[in-house]
Design a protein around this nucleic acid. Structure first.
Lengths: 378, 378
DNA sequence: CCTCGGCAGGGAAACGCTTTCCAAAAGCAG
DNA sequence: CTGCTTTTGGAAAGCGTTTCCCTGCCGAGG
């Protein structure tokens, strides 16, 4: 612990710099200034369209910018502004087609407002969320949207204490200073259950997502609630835990297929699971939708191209992305008019396609089959 | 805790700073130093595991790091090292499932080596590549992998002149100082054509990608070459330009369906197109594979879950990502042992599943149908 | 004609946090 | 007590901007 060293007043000893740090071809504001024969201050003012620059001079500067191929360095700007203008986006699994759609919407919105996006995917492992978050914080992002589910509570609390802008989907604990996007799973799933019940289904199974995920639990609970509302009971073996993947759907179908009485309809916690269920039914005697109806969730773009096109609950990822970006901006720009808002709601609704129909043996199904025969004989 | 920090004489006039730039809760190396009662230099040495620090002291520093929740700021490190440790990755379309798989592999490799990834998608519009590239350059990325196709030549030349590390897939012009990943489309497509020819197909159509894309042209040309090799002719109407999307596959199928004689097999330039073709055939009298065989390209994860599971040409996106990251590192770290290497090759190969079979009416098909009948009668 | 005000433009500090250089302190041996 | 080594601390350097403040110029008014 030395006492303070009074350092020799050699102001700039210009460290000898063997490993040239500057990229040889990089073009900075200095090059523009030299080319245009002005000071860097003038170039900066020109670029930022500050009106005190002489128009003639500005034109010369713009020409110089073009000639040397200058691009303002965002990092340096971040240095001055104190904002990195980068956002983090954490999703469950980038290879699940729902998320690229979300990423695209999010990115478009973010870029339109001058932000760059760093993407991380947790692969449904809560532990990865934490390391991902660390990575993003090290990169100095201005805020993070956590569009996956199940984050370590203490990490969140730590970040809340630092007043770090965070947005969650379906957050559990109602922490102060956190913005939440609440998806109204209830409505869409109620529509799905009522649709199936109206078709005459009495035995409806549910393939959930991994139950560590809050959203998966929320969807399952919404299903149970809706089933209660229409007066249908759900035996325990008709609730199967999946993984939100096609493989999970296949496995769930295997375990449902082993039951004595097969359900006549299956609602899945997401579309990938539904695709897996369709695949699991293919090659068996059970045809979709004649023998068994299948409903998905998310309405990914692919859903309408499945064979048969998938009846599914739509959750607009555009709405989701819009809410996320808006909520993050509210957190970042403290003077933002919307910064007081803490909650965003996303509706869901059923989209009926061709993977659902009357259960085999029900009256409408018989009528329909009869009509088909008559048509055939025509 | 003596106030040994006697402020240096006047030299820092401390600009009055109304908009506090520093994030209030942010933790820096200074906080750790204060907490541990050491200098920031010692903290830095500890973090970087420089062996001259006293182990006891190091332990105290690590504890302090834990207590205050310190994360080294990558931006500041970049400032000193001159490297942002960020890579750009430009893909065609993030919602085409092939690319998320690629992104994931690329990101895993990059992160393992201390890089972060900025992703951009062009949506097949060459103009977007340029603005994307600008965005990435402004963000000061250390290099960019362009996994889409068709980049403005002059932009590329400009970057080459700046010695900016770039990696292309299927680059056309053999520019110096550029690293290229060459995908061997020929082999996989040859296998596909030979597979179909061996099954007895004589009329094979091809649905290409958008022909602005070099890779789309390369795939089509590989198809024509292979067809020539097996002695089959390709009438012009059997080559249809698609868009590398499901919608494009449906439209291509419509135009093929309007022909007098339908081909008995269709090879598609990517799997999404093949899915569209399958969808387009669904509901018609033509069944896959009994009436018409369909082959895809890419082997996305989804391919094996299609109904029927898709025969397709596999291009390992792990190989692709590995090559891309390796090539970028070679360009960035000039002292890298592999920096001389300029070209990487990716093989392709056919994966036979259930969307291909004998053409209807051919001898093997008749034999097979007969066998099936016999089995049934058993 | 001289002075003052307004304004365009230039020089240089500040911005952030880390790494690293150099020197000081401390410990030990001769 | 001197000289050497080892450990630690102070402070500069590093990036490319933005912005503050001051200079110099020009026109207008006294």
């Amino acid at each position: 612990m030395g006492k303070r060293t009074i350092v020799s007043p050699v102001s700039h000893p210009k460290r000898n710099n063997p490993s040239a740090r500057r990229r040889p071809g990089a073009v900075s504001i200095r090059d523009v200034a030299q080319r245009a024969g002005v000071s860097i201050a003038t170039v900066s003012r020109t670029v930022n369209r500050i009106p005190t620059v002489n128009p003639e001079l500005a034109k010369r500067v713009w020409r110089a910018i073009d000639e040397v191929g200058y691009l303002p360095n965002t990092q340096a700007r971040a240095l001055v502004s104190g904002r990195s203008h980068m956002l983090g986006l954490i999703v469950s699994e980038i290879t699940n087609p729902f998320f690229p759609e979300l990423v695209q919407e999010f990115e478009n919105l973010a870029v339109a407002q001058g932000y760059e996006v760093l993407i991380g995917s947790t692969n449904y492992e809560p532990a990865r969320t934490e390391s991902l978050m660390r990575r993003l914080l090290q990169r100095n992002v201005d805020g993070v949207a956590v569009m996956t589910f199940g984050v370590e509570e203490d990490l969140v609390k730590q970040l809340v204490a630092r007043e770090f802008p965070l947005v969650f989907v379906d957050a559990g604990a109602d922490l102060p200073n956190i913005r939440v996007i609440k998806v109204d799973y209830g409505e869409g799933i109620r529509q799905a259950v009522q649709h199936l019940a109206a078709l005459g289904h009495r035995h409806i199974a549910f393939v959930s997502g991994p139950l560590r995920l809050r959203s998966a639990v929320a969807r399952r609970d919404a299903f149970l609630k809706s089933m209660g509302e229409v007066g249908l009971s759900v035996p325990g073996e008709h609730i199967v835990e999946g993984t939100h993947t096609m493989e999970g759907g296949i496995m769930a179908m295997e375990s449902l297929g082993a039951l004595e009485t097969l359900p006549t309809a299956i609602i899945c916690s997401n579309d990938m699971t539904a695709i897996g269920v369709l695949h699991g039914l293919h090659g068996t005697v059970h045809k979709v939708p004649e023998d068994i109806s299948v409903v998905g969730f998310d309405d990914i773009h692919l859903a309408q191209f499945m064979l048969p096109p998938l009846t599914t609950v739509q959750m607009s990822c555009k709405d989701l992305a819009t809410a996320a970006v808006e909520a993050l901006r509210a957190g970042i720009e403290s003077g933002h008019p919307k910064s007081a808002r803490k909650e965003w709601r996303i509706p869901t609704r059923l989209v009926v396609r061709q993977s659902t129909s009357y259960p085999r043996g029900s009256l409408p199904a018989l009528v329909r089959r009869h009509a088909a025969k008559v048509n055939q004989g025509d």
